Computed example of a mutant assay.
Amino acid sequence: MEIGPSGDFVVTAGSKARVRTTRTIPRGTVTLRNTLVEKDVLREEGDFLVFTSAYSFTSASAAAAAVIGASANGRILWKLPDGRNYADWEASQGMSDCDSE
């Protein structure tokens, strides 16, 4: 996942999503996943759906729900390479902005 220039959440090409969904998946996410499969943005490969191209989501949670196939809090679930979650990273960005003023 990357953060796009307008603050959108971009799941990069080659990323994997769960094929199976849970009962908690929002209806809109089911519709979106089906649309992405129809448009070949998501392609079933074995036990996963694979993003064939990058796709931009409006929020971290929308991206996370589409990837895990369930209701999700993306601010907690998305992890940075250093192990911090997105919420922690976002909070640290706010602190560094204040320190530079």
Rank of each mutant, 00 (worst) to 15 (best):
G69N: 14
E38Y: 12
S15M: 13
E2N: 14
I76Y: 09
R33I: 05
T58Y: 13
E2T: 04
D40Q: 13
T12H: 07
V37N: 06
L80F: 08
M95V: 15
S61N: 03
F48E: 06
P81H: 12
E44W: 01
N73H: 03
D82R: 13
D97A: 15
I76A: 10
S56M: 10
R23W: 03
T22D: 05
T21D: 13
A63I: 08
W78P: 06
P5E: 10
A87F: 07
D47T: 14
K16F: 04
W89S: 00
G94V: 10
W89T: 04
P81Q: 11
R43N: 04
T58D: 14
R20C: 09
D82W: 09
W89G: 01
G14D: 02
L77C: 00
F51C: 09
V19K: 15
T12M: 12
D82Y: 10
A91S: 15
G74S: 05
D82I: 07
D97R: 15
K39G: 00
L49I: 01
R20N: 11
V67H: 07
M95S: 14
V10K: 07
I68R: 11
E44N: 10
A13I: 08
L42T: 04
E44V: 02
Y55I: 00
S71D: 08
T31N: 11
T31Y: 01
V19F: 15
A64F: 01
M1G: 13
L42I: 02
T58M: 14
L36H: 05
A65L: 00
A17E: 01
L49C: 01
C98R: 15
S100C: 13
G69C: 13
A66W: 02
R20V: 04
F9I: 05
V10P: 02
I3E: 08
E101K: 12
G7Q: 10
V67S: 01
E45G: 01
T24D: 08
S59T: 14
D82G: 10
N73R: 02
N34T: 00
K39D: 13
S96V: 15
M95H: 05
T29K: 06
D8W: 10
I25K: 07
I3R: 15
F48K: 06
V30W: 03
P5Q: 14
T52G: 14
E44P: 00
W78V: 01
A54C: 05
R20L: 04
A54N: 10
R75I: 07
D47G: 13
F51L: 09
G4D: 02
S61F: 05
A63S: 13
E38V: 04
